[in-house]
Each structure stands twice: as structure tokens, then as C-alpha cells.
Write a protein that binds this DNA or RNA. Sequence first.
DNA 1: TAACCATCTTGATCTGTATCAATGCCGCTC
DNA 2: GAGCGGCATTGATACAGATCAAGATGGTTA
Lengths: 248, 248
Amino acid sequence: MLNQNSLSVAQDCSECPIRHRAVCARCETDELERLEDIKYYRRFEAGQTVIWSGDKMDFVGSVVSGIASLTQTMEDGRTQMVGLLLPSDFVGRPGRNTAAYDVVATTDVVMCCFRKAPFEELMEKTPHIAQRLLQMTLDELDAAREWMLVLGRKTAREKIASLLSIVARRDASLNMARLSGAVTFDLPLTREAMADYLGLTLETVSRQMSALRKDGVITLEGKRHITVPDMSVLLEEAGDDTDGGLLV
Amino acid sequence: MLNQNSLSVAQDCSECPIRHRAVCARCETDELERLEDIKYYRRFEAGQTVIWSGDKMDFVGSVVSGIASLTQTMEDGRTQMVGLLLPSDFVGRPGRNTAAYDVVATTDVVMCCFRKAPFEELMEKTPHIAQRLLQMTLDELDAAREWMLVLGRKTAREKIASLLSIVARRDASLNMARLSGAVTFDLPLTREAMADYLGLTLETVSRQMSALRKDGVITLEGKRHITVPDMSVLLEEAGDDTDGGLLV
DNA sequence: TAACCATCTTGATCTGTATCAATGCCGCTC
DNA sequence: GAGCGGCATTGATACAGATCAAGATGGTTA
């Protein structure tokens, strides 16, 4: 799995990714230290629903390891993934009492949580935290809007390439690797999860993955281990002009 | 046009919509009063680009009258609207120096603006403002994610119904009207703009509008003036289960 | 080693939406 | 009131991706 570094991120924040810091007791000012006593960890197994849309959501937190996803479902069962939570991503709705979407563990997941009420109280007293949360939310909004272009206007092949480049870039920057040249990573999603994220069927995903492989854009080892010989080719396939886009 | 109330909203904030208050000098605490001297108005003609993606964005503000849209464009010209700015909506990227998308005036638009640097400075000193901005941004994020379901999984007919119900509900609440029963409003978008928002072609939009008319879901007077005899039927067509969704 | 199950691949066919192409409508100008 | 230009409608056809349907693969259990 991607970044299976268990609890170390949360406990030693010298390597703590920026988004995680907002809710991690060891990273911040003295103010934040006080949150130590309301911090706790939660584990979820792959497939488990962390929280259902509409349910009371009394915590905020961030993903320590594993992958979770935000999904919306229609009455007839059609589902759309609206966000991917990779390690260090924040989840929570300060100022809101219920979840707006289902949060589902896509792999086994460990989350670092804080009870929401004390967190919000601290947020009000510490402008610093509110500011950071605003920045994070703006970033997510940008990412969501970028994804709207993918969903609304890109072809199936471009959609797949877009997803792969997001995961590759995200993985690469967590590993402090370079973005140019070859990149190797594990894609921790089933074909069905990919389809839900991209607004496609799993058969179309499978076909397009095969096509990208045949065309030499990617190499597959097993179902999930992917090598991109040349990231610029993948970005080209994704139809990204300037690149530089953010991601959930 | 929708809510053609010119400058009165900004100058007398007793009726000032909640989102506008965040940047309106007369609505807030003494702190905000100080911003008075950096407040100004800008007018844009229909079709005019307020700001290009990637350009320096040195103001924040909100729409006083008219409609603007946030759009993303691919190299080959495919475009996707990623947000609709209706009167009272906020635009700006605190903490960021460049625009992330094109902002285009869809009708004639008046915006109430503040220079960004002083606004940000004030935001840091006044947690209240940062909090409000965070809430607004979280709402927009919810709306964007709701729209991802529309783009990724809904049929053309459902997409049209979703757009109409958003504009109808938004218009109705601004006018303090009830949501049940019949609703009448002007849809201030060309068929092409609708298509850009929905990830469709303008021909498909036109066909589905005709179909909804034939089926009695809507009544058209001219091209733009729309009556919905029964909102619940429209919401049904949109595939919304619980409704209650927010909107940009 | 075999049987099993979840996941993935591939093929054949269908269908919703795009594409290409006329035609219609309406306000504006001269 | 004729002509023009921007928008909208409608029709005919093409095609990308969905749907339906077999298999294939690979890991796990017995």
C-alpha cells in the first residue's frame, strides 16, 4: 500500500505532511499541544464505512495510512466518488454537525482524530488554525473543480491518465522523488473504485488500462503495480495543458 | 435578469444576503468598517472576462447583480464551467496570488470588490472574518462535490433538471418565496452556457429542454422565462433523493 | 492439488449523446 | 419591411462508452 508508515507520522511530526500538521498535536504551537488529550486513533478495515452521509460527525482528523474515499450515492445505486483521502489528508466539517457524504475505507485505514467540539473551540481561539484550515479547504475546492473538468469533458482514456497522474504525483511528492522521467507506484484502487471516481464502468476502465499498456504509456506488474516510463507522456494523455494542478 | 437590484444591496445591508456580508463594509463589526476606504465597484459587460486563469488576482469581492461563471478550458477548446456566481456569491482566493480559473461575466455584472492585501491583513486580525470565509468555502466545496455527481453519473435529462432546480431554488430563496408548488424564474444562461455547465453539447440541451416542455415538467415563455408547475416533479426528474443540496 | 471466490479481461451488441447540417425565430439596423 | 446576425430547434447519422455475457487470473482454504 501507499505509505504504509503506520503511526509514525502522527507521533513524530518531523516528517509530518503539511495537511496533517493542522490536527497533529506535536507539530504546532503550544496552543495545539493542549489538544493532546483529545487525540485518538481509529482503525478501519478495507471496505468499512467510516461514516454515513447524514450521520452525526463528531470528530475531525486526518488519514495516517491507507486510502479512504468520499462517495455520493443515488437512490438507484449509481455512485460517484467525490474525493480521495490519501495519507495526510484532512477530513471533517468544522461548523457542521453531519457528514455530507459517505466516507469509505478503500484499503485498511488508520486515522488520527480529534473530538470536534474541543477542536472547534480551539480553532476559534487560535486564528492560526482557522487560517490553515481555510487554505486547505481552498486547495480542496480547487481540486474538486479541476476534477469537474475531468468528469464533464474528458474521454475515458484521458480520465484514466488523469487519475494515474494524480496518484503518481501525489505518491512521488510524498516520497520526495522527482516528477520527471520514470515513476513507479501502487494504485490502491480496484477497477470498480477507479470507475466510481471517474464516472465510468469498470469494463471501460479495464479496457483503457489495457490500451495504455499496449501503447507503452504504462507498464503493469500484477494488477496494481504501475510504472510510468515517462510522466510527460502520461500528462499529455491526460490532456493537462500546464499541469500544476492540485489534487484531493 | 435575476435580482437586478443594482447597488442597493451593498449600500444598505439590512437586506444583504449572508455571503455578501462577509465583504460588505456596512454589515459587520467596527473592524470591517475600516475597509470602507478600500471598497470599490466594478462593472462588466456580458461576455467580458473578469479575470483569466493564471493572472494576478488582487481583489476579492462578491457579485451584486448579474451572473458570472468560473470556467476551465482545455488546449483544444473544450470548456467546463466549474461554478456559477449568482448575486451575493463571493469570489477571491485569500492566500493565493493568481486566479485558478477564468471568471467570465455571463450577463452584465456589478461586483463589490476589496483590494486583496488589506482584506487579508484584516482577515488575520479578525478571526470572525476568517471563520465566515471558511464556512463559505466549505459550502462551496459541498456544492462542487454535489455537482461532481451530476457530471459523472446523471443522464442529460437529469442534468438539465438539476440545473433548473438549482437556479429555481436559489432564485426562490432570494425572493423569500416558497419552494413548494409552482415557481417562475428567468434562466440567465444561453443553451451553450448551460451545456458548458452540464458537460453536454448545446444541441442535447435544446433537445432535453424540449422534452421536458413536452412532458409538462416545465413551461417556456420565450427562450429563458421558465415556469415549473410543480417543483417536486422537477426534483424527481433531477434524481435528487433527499434534496436539501447546496449550490454554488 | 483442487476447488473456490473475488477481481479482472475481453468480446459482442446496444444506446445515449455527439456531430454534422439545415432551418426557424427574433430583435436590430438601415 | 428587408436583410442580417445571434441564438435555438430539429433531423440524420456516427461513435464512445454502457451493457450483457463469457472466460481468465491469482490468491486463499481445505
